[in-house]
Design a protein around this nucleic acid. Structure first.
Length: 271
DNA sequence: AGGAGGTGGCCTGTTACGTCA
DNA sequence: TGTGACGTAACAGGCCACCTC
């Protein structure tokens, strides 16, 4: 019965509002979302790690870029080419240039000062105060992304944090939200899967019962009222809607009103 | 027009620290 | 007091869009 879950895969996708093209998009298109990842559509994007790179046909080992300013490589060998990154401003440097340095944002926060003193490998983790968290949460509720740089700067000033910290907080917050949503979706899919298994078992039973009737195949088919027929989502075979199955189902069946005779198509019997 | 390089923003995964049971 | 689990700030490395040259 290894086929059971596979059998109804498309239906799960349908129920979650994920068309195959959407799935494709999710895995290949990483374009910026306009905003508000808060409003997650009920889609589940479970991709294997490294999918994106795979999709783009890239193998790993690009020049190491340093966003955090921990270290900097002058050059890195990639295949046969030597890519110089000496001219690449690391992100921290960019921020400094764009006025995001700690000095620009004057702060009385001991936490920040303490952190500034830290050596490269000795990062100290600050704990945001409740007030800071609350303010950030509020900002996140309004916009899950820091769209204009100005917003980041303002928030940082207001919170007496560095813009980089605000940025990181938003990134982590988005990640947490997404993770939570994924868990919810996972649970939902599990339930769907269970329901589908039950449904499949029930259909199998019904099929066996029908087969066990000692009527000629053609006659059996003719006896089924058209109104009671529906399509099997996986193989587009025929099922019986008179049972309570439809009311129990937490999902909708594929919208392909394509009836055909399961008895003249042996492969459908395996569904 | 279009390719290259720079920049900023975001995502995902990981690391490491602080807290608490 | 030591410790493991957990939450999360910070980081690393990657991609993409946009801009400028």
């Amino acid at each position: 019965m290894g086929n059971d879950s596979f059998c109804y895969k498309d239906n799960i996708v349908l129920e979650l509002g994920l068309s195959s093209s959407m799935v494709e998009n999710n895995s290949t298109n990483t374009t910026k979302r306009p905003c508000s990842s808060l409003n997650f559509d009920p889609s589940l994007t479970l991709t294997l790690s490294g999918d994106r790179d795979h999709d783009h046909g890239l193998t790993k080992k690009k020049p190491a870029r340093d966003h955090g300013g921990l270290y900097r490589q002058d050059s890195v060998s990639v295949g046969s080419s030597l890519i110089s990154v000496a001219s690449v401003c690391v992100k921290r440097e960019r921020e400094v240039k764009s006025g995001e340095s700690e000095k620009v944002i004057s702060t009385t926060s001991d936490q920040v000062e303490e952190q500034d003193d830290n050596s490269v490998n000795d990062r100290k983790k600050l704990r945001l105060t409740k007030a800071q968290s609350a303010l950030l949460e509020e900002a996140f509720k309004q916009h899950s992304t820091l769209n204009p740089q100005k917003q980041k700067q303002e928030l940082a000033r207001e919170l007496k944090l560095r813009p980089r910290q605000v940025e990181v907080w938003f990134q982590n917050r988005r990640a947490r939200t997404k993770l939570k949503q994924t868990e919810v979706d996972c649970e939902y899919l599990k339930k769907c899967c269970e329901a589908l298994k039950e449904e499949n078992t029930r259909l199998h039973k019904e099929l066996q019962e029908l087969k066990s009737l000692k009527l000629p195949a053609q006659q059996r088919y003719m006896k089924l009222p058209a109104a009671t027929l529906t399509t099997c989502p996986s193989c587009e075979g025929v099922g019986d809607t008179t049972s309570s199955a439809n009311t129990r189902r937490p999902f909708t069946m594929a919208q392909k009103p394509h009836f055909f005779n399961p008895f003249s198509n042996p492969s459908s019997a395996a569904c």
